[in-house]
Design a protein around this nucleic acid. Structure first.
Ligand SMILES: NC(=O)c1ccc[n+]([C@@H]2O[C@H](COP(=O)([O-])OP(=O)(O)OC[C@H]3O[C@@H](n4cnc5c(N)ncnc54)[C@H](O)[C@@H]3O)[C@@H](O)[C@H]2O)c1
Ligand SMILES: NC(=O)c1ccc[n+]([C@@H]2O[C@H](COP(=O)([O-])OP(=O)(O)OC[C@H]3O[C@@H](n4cnc5c(N)ncnc54)[C@H](O)[C@@H]3O)[C@@H](O)[C@H]2O)c1
Lengths: 224, 224
DNA sequence: CGGGCCTTGTGAATCATTTCACAAGACCTG
DNA sequence: CAGGTCTTGTGAAATGATTCACAAGGCCCG
């Protein structure tokens, strides 16, 4: 367990990912050192926030100088668990499933989709690159054999709960879920939901209010 | 402007979207009324949270009874700005772009992709359903003519800042951004980032810590 | 080697969100 | 219509996150 001074929040973790990407950019630009202020600028937060976030895990900077780009990158990768390879099972060989599979950036981070599962017989047996699509009844053996602890779930909502439970039963501990429903799983299982309709709705809300709209929601219809 | 008792937080808004979806489910199941506790259960929060969230916008329930499913649905749609149609411009006719375009659920919420733009000459001129892919130099006229205030940006990071600025210049006020970079735009422009690599990294972090890993991050290398 | 200049790391203070707890209503039953 | 049972709406309390502010260190220059 890393030198943990205090328990980092969910948002701290998400910012660590952003710092890591910012550092990669800085590295490519030839910078060898970065202050909390520079990092904050790249990521859209404040210098104090950067320092506080990092301070949960250790002291990585030098006073008066800032942070060294390359070593901090390494530290962040270790903190985030990216110093190792993560075999991932993808369930749902549909539209987003295929977009994700072909996305090269996952591989660059150590996430490797080692198996694809789908229940559609027309898809089972096809190959995507190196990986052949397997039928659902191989779920358990595939998860087990490939030692996959992470899964990406890109199937419609009505099958998602059952499949998620099967994944967990087979040994999966973390799920990136695209199906628009609340998965009910044991609390030790980590679930991250990606809900794109919700993101659009948040935009709609912001524009709706800021815009010209003035009529609208009246709470009680005929009360006194 | 709706009856706003106090300013709702970002997370309140996101939960409203979840309540709305939960209500739709309850409606389909034939429920005509729902307590804050029931709603909380469906969405994975607490009853007090549900009531507090709703209370920012009005009084929608009846004491002793709960909330009526159908009217609350209508109220939530109005609060979120979903009572109207939102024309949307999609920039980037690639893998996720096409997945999003074909996703029927957006349409069900009033989001309609009315134009697709791409800079690849091989893609320009093709049709996706009713919509023809336009070249980038038509960006301004398309956004303007279709009165699109929302855009979805699914192009690689290196073009994203320029295209986002062009969208804003043409009248777009909200962007759903898939490119993994921090867009720098005027503060009145609403940007929601979808960063899938980051979501995977958050899972990696959680599993990494909870798991067997114990070696790890040591802060200073050769200090004394 | 001392003084000036920077930037970190971090308690304390502020600000935001969530949870608690309960009075005010609403309905139903007898 | 009074009493019992429910569930809302909401101040107040608790918890959590961010920002402030500054002492402690490190580097460089002269
Ligand atoms: N496409 C989008 O842009 C988008 C946007 C937001 C959310 N989503 C959500 O992502 C999920 C997938 O969307 P999509 O557009 O890729 O769908 P899709 O229909 O293109 O693909 C779904 C795939 O899952 C397979 N499948 C269905 N049920 C299954 C089951 N029980 N077990 C195993 N495989 C099963 C199907 O055979 C198909 O190959 C859905 O939940 C959808 O709501 C999609
Ligand atoms: N595919 C994924 O699963 C995935 C996951 C996470 C993030 N992303 C991000 O989403 C974005 C799109 O990913 P994708 O996989 O769909 O890429 P893609 O290469 O399949 O599609 C990108 C499309 O954008 C077009 N394009 C490129 N530059 C452009 C420009 N300057 N102006 C207009 N059009 C331009 C290309 O012609 C192409 O059609 C990228 O930023 C990527 O990092 C994708």
């Amino acid at each position: 367990m890393p030198r943990r001074r205090s328990k980092p929040s969910e948002s701290t973790i998400r910012r660590l990912s952003l710092y890591l990407r910012a550092l990669e950019g800085l590295g490519e630009e030839g910078e060898s050192t970065a202050s909390s202020e520079l990092l904050a600028g790249r990521v859209g937060t404040t210098a104090a926030q950067v320092r506080k976030d990092l301070s949960h895990f250790g002291s990585f900077g030098k006073r008066g100088l800032g942070y060294e780009v390359a070593p901090l990158q390494v530290h962040l990768k270790e903190i985030l668990g990216l110093h190792r390879r993560w075999p991932v099972v993808l369930v749902g060989a549909g539209r987003i499933g295929s977009a994700l599979f072909e996305y090269p950036h996952f591989g660059a981070r150590g996430f490797e989709i080692v198996a694809i599962l789908d229940r559609d017989p027309a898809k089972v047996g096809r190959r995507w690159g190196e990986v052949e699509i397997s039928p659902m009844d191989e779920l358990e053996s595939v998860v087990h054999d490939r030692k996959a602890e992470l899964a990406i779930l890109t199937i419609p909502w009505d099958g998602a709960q059952d499949v998620a439970e099967a994944l967990v039963a087979a040994g999966v501990r973390g799920i990136l879920n695209f199906a628009p429903l609340q998965l009910r799983l044991p609390p030790e299982i980590e679930v991250n939901d990606v809900n794109l309709a919700l993101e659009m709705e948040a935009l709609s809300f912001a524009l709706h209010l800021g815009g010209s709209q003035v009529d609208g929601v009246d709470a009680r219809s005929g009360e006194g």
